[in-house]
Write a protein that binds this DNA or RNA. Structure first.
Lengths: 165, 165
DNA sequence: ATGTAAATGTTATAACATAACAGTAATGAA
DNA sequence: TTCATTACTGTTATGTTATAACATTTACAT
């Protein structure tokens, strides 16, 4: 299985070049959309960038207000439509426990991430673990349940917030 | 570990005596509150009953409208305050992916259930599995993350909806 | 160029949740 | 028993998140 060690970088204190992080994500999104034959329009791309602005999940209305600042009056459906598109393409994830959205670090792959969300700084890290997936799927099918989507969110304290400088 | 086979009963088609199910839950709630020295007031008890009305998660405003019907005009804070209390005591769970609430089948115990929620009929079953818990906790702590709360929700098709009569 | 489907703009409103403050009821100490 | 304190409830207003419905524009294939 692919190594997702990079996730640890996305805890808030992990000093990484986030500009680069965004550029990579956008480029991956462009390629993915191209290969799928779907359109990553300017609006969608811009909203994806705004979601990727940080590793903190952002609310739809946060995106809306940034967008309004730069492009003049914008209405909620503009944002929600783009978010829905991005969700469908697996380019972002929705964090249900926060009503917020966060960029997906590996959009081309498996789509049931586990999110570790810091209650202090608000950052979110996406983790993949085959054992967790398997255990959950096995449990469900043992009960006769056919899984379609998963929401796995763990709230707590991230490493950086446990050991503040 | 305790056997939670009873969860399978809570899929919508499982014909069980739900009246009895509610009575049991309320009784357990009364005992639990008594033992904890917290007050299960009439309002709280009634709202717990309304949440337990079915195995489908119910929205706060569903509870509100039922309450308004039987007790005259009621405002949202009445409902939300009771729901918050019930959540704190572990008597109900919040289903984040539905913005809805559902009765907890074993309030005295461990509090990180896994919910299997049917996309067809809307019923929700609470499952506990030590392996899942352990795997997730281990994964988190390997990454230096200290878990506090968990939201584990699997949406899909329940056994009854897979094999309709 | 033009018909069609996809995307976006716009207005209004639905659905979910809380802030803030006033009033009432339960509880325990004097 | 009274009083003070705290917990609980009522009420009004408002904040936050999300979608319905319909008009308009844009992209694309023919």
């Amino acid at each position: 299985m692919k190594n997702f060690d990079t996730v640890s970088l996305s805890f808030c204190g992990g000093s990484h070049d986030h500009g680069r992080c965004v550029i990579t994500a956008i480029k991956a999104a462009e390629e993915l959309c191209h290969s799928k034959g779907v359109r990553l329009t300017d609006a969608r791309k811009r909203i994806l960038e705004l979601v990727w602005d940080s590793h903190h999940p952002v609310g739809a209305y946060d995106v809306l207000s940034k967008l309004s600042q730069e492009s003049g009056k914008t209405a909620p459906p503009t944002v929600y439509r783009a978010l829905d598109f991005l969700l469908e393409q697996g380019l972002i994830h929705r964090i249900e426990s926060l009503n917020a959205y966060v960029g997906c670090a590996h959009p081309a792959e498996d789509h049931a991430g586990l999110f570790l969300i810091c209650n202090k700084c608000g950052c979110a890290a996406e983790v993949h673990d085959e054992t967790i997936d398997q255990t959950i799927l096995t449990k469900a099918s043992n009960l006769g349940f056919r899984p379609e989507q998963r929401t796995l969110e763990v709230r707590g304290i991230c490493p950086d917030c446990q050991n503040p400088q």
